[in-house]
């Protein structure tokens, strides 16, 4: 298999397989969760579960002051790499073309140099996240193999993407193919790891907000 074969494979069957696993995995997991169901709350409500649930989906993104003070590093680096991922994934022209090809939807891209800079910042943030995870007693205690694996498959597309864009280290088709392959790895592992939080976070925050809101507390 030469590099163009490889590139064609990752752009073709490889991507298809990854998307099938990703889409099927995500949907099965979400259906699996939702079908377990929840008993209705028979206690008299003090507040609106619905309103609070909806609000928490968004409000939980902004940490409350004392929490920010206690977990500053995790929150700041977390914000940086999440926003960085958002920008690099959704606002880079070639990526938008991909989304357009799949969904028909398109939106304006950010200037390439900005995405490039954001990529570097995101990679740095992810390395800091790992360093912190390894040096902080609590996080080291919490960390399992899955955490490391997820970190790896998250940073790989950024690194391979960076190299593919700057075309260093190997020939361009190989770099591009490796980048796409790393994304496919991410897609394949997505439904079976904690990466799933990207989707279930909506449910979790909703439930948390609804449980609290029903009792009259905005969580």
């Amino acid at each position: 298999m030469n590099e163009i074969d490889f590139l064609n494979w990752v752009r073709g069957p490889g991507f298809q397989i990854a998307v099938i696993i990703f889409v099927a995995g995500i949907i099965i997991r979400l259906v699996e969760i939702l079908m377990l169901g929840r008993k209705p709350n028979l206690a008299e409500a003090k507040g609106s579960a619905m309103r609070s649930g909806l609000r928490t989906i968004f409000s939980r993104s902004i940490p409350e002051k004392s929490t920010f003070k206690r977990s500053t590093f995790v929150i700041v680096t977390g914000f940086i790499f999440h926003i960085g991922l958002l920008i690099t994934i959704f606002f880079f022209t070639p990526h938008i073309l991909l989304f357009k090809d799949v969904s028909g939807l398109s939106w304006p891209a950010l200037p390439t140099p900005i995405v490039d800079a954001v990529t570097v910042v995101t990679i740095i943030a992810l390395f800091l996240v790992l360093a912190h995870r390894m040096s902080n007693t609590v996080l080291r205690f919490l960390t399992n193999y899955e955490d490391i694996l997820v970190w790896l498959v998250t940073i790989l597309p950024l690194i391979t993407g960076y190299f593919a864009f700057h075309r260093v280290g190997a020939t361009a088709p190989t770099l591009l193919a490796l980048h796409i392959l790393s994304v496919e790895l991410l897609l394949v592992l997505f439904p079976f790891t904690k990466l799933m939080h990207a989707f279930t976070i909506v449910l979790a925050r909703w439930y948390n907000g609804a449980i609290s809101g029903y009792r009259g507390v905005q969580s």
Binding site: G12, L98, D101, V102
Partner: peptide
């Protein structure tokens, strides 16, 4: 950057 197959 587009997939070669009909992904939609």
């Amino acid at each position: 950057s587009m997939p070669t197959e009909d992904i939609s």
